[in-house]
């Protein structure tokens, strides 16, 4: 297990180095920082001074090492637009996105797995056919359409739920949570459904096809031949085998939910990372974009590492032989 952990961490460091190189490249290629920072009528000498002050005269590798040194210390620079430290901006927005993604993931697992099992065990039942048909709509409708339709129905027409924002939040240390107030919870419902819908469909279909495969496997036939109860075979034996790939997919999906919650956050004006990023892009706010890139990279690396370790925990075949 330790060797596996070390190997995975080594790979993670390599990936992060590559991502940081891309982030570093953004500063160099997306416009000249000197012209962005200096006054419009600055003289050539002033610009040269600024250039030296920023260390842009030094060799590229030295600059990159400096950049790495700063991010390791948590210094991502100052946002061009807000004139505030990028790290503070991200820390402020992170809880909103994480809470949204957490609720969406729980929702998709809690509904996706039972529905998938239903479709696999009773493939010809009316319920299964209905679920299958609806899931097709779920997987093929773009997120912004789902979001707008939900807003139109529940916020505009029925007036039951808020159409934008996080509602009231409670500050617990550095974390602002919307899970503790009624308006915060109400505000979570529509965005989390919108975000969960695609993942729910994916998990449902995955569980269904995996379970159908597993149920026709030799070891399930052998379990039947041993006279075990159908309940035990389906829910204790087969489901565990069928959930193996679900772990991977859910892990990867959490990563992409966080990274690509942009559309949902824009539709619901959710004050999270995605909204921050969209605004940064429209203002060419390179420090924020670079920090976001690093953050998403780190997130994917962490999640993938966690998934691999979890996999080894669930599947004895992947554990190191003693």
């Amino acid at each position: 297990m330790l060797a596996l952990l070390i190997a995975r961490l080594g790979q993670a460091v390599l990936v992060m180095l590559a991502v940081s190189a891309v982030a570093f490249g953004m500063f160099r290629f997306v416009g000249d920082p000197v012209s962005a920072l200096s006054r419009e009528n600055a003289t050539v000498e002033e610009k040269q001074e600024l250039r030296e002050a920023l260390g842009l005269e030094r060799p590229v590798l030295v600059q990159y090492a400096g950049f790495l040194g700063r991010i390791v210390q948590g210094d991502f620079g100052i946002s061009y637009r807000n004139q505030r430290p990028v790290a503070a901006l991200i820390a402020e927005r992170l809880p909103a996105t994480l809470e949204l993604v957490l609720v969406a993931t729980v929702l998709s697992l809690a509904l996706g797995i039972p529905l998938g099992v239903l479709c696999a065990l009773k493939p010809d039942g009316i319920a299964a056919r209905l679920v299958q048909a609806v899931s097709l709509i779920g997987i093929s409708t773009p997120t912004f359409v789902t979001g707008i339709v939900l807003i139109l129905t529940f916020a505009v027409t029925l007036g039951l739920l808020p159409s934008f924002g996080r509602g009231e939040t409670v500050q617990i240390g550095p974390w602002s949570t919307g899970l503790l107030t009624l308006s915060g919870l109400k505000a979570l419902i529509l965005p989390s459904i919108t975000l969960a819908l695609y993942q729910l469909t994916l998990i449902m279909r995955l569980v269904r096809s995996e379970l159908i495969d597993v149920l026709s496997s030799d070891y399930i036939r052998f379990a039947r031949a041993r006279g075990l109860s159908t309940r035990h075979i389906h829910f204790t034996l087969a489901l565990r085998n069928a959930l193996m790939p679900v772990i991977t997919v859910t892990g990867l999906q959490i990563g992409s939910l966080i990274a690509f919650a942009i559309v949902t956050e824009t539709v619901f004006q959710w004050p999270g990372m995605g909204l921050l990023f969209i605004q940064a892009v429209s203002f060419s706010d390179v420090p924020v974009m670079a920090a976001y890139l690093l953050f998403v990279g780190l997130l994917f690396v962490l999640i993938n590492t966690a998934v691999d370790l979890l996999y080894a925990l669930v599947d004895p075949r992947l554990r190191v032989r003693s």
Binding site: Y219, A225, R226, N241, R317
Partner: peptide, 18 residues
């Protein structure tokens, strides 16, 4: 399972790996 036991062809796949 109680009165009739079964043995299948492939021992690699007859047992649940987990």
């Amino acid at each position: 399972g109680r009165d009739i036991g079964a043995v299948f062809q492939d021992p690699m796949t007859s047992l649940n790996p987990l």
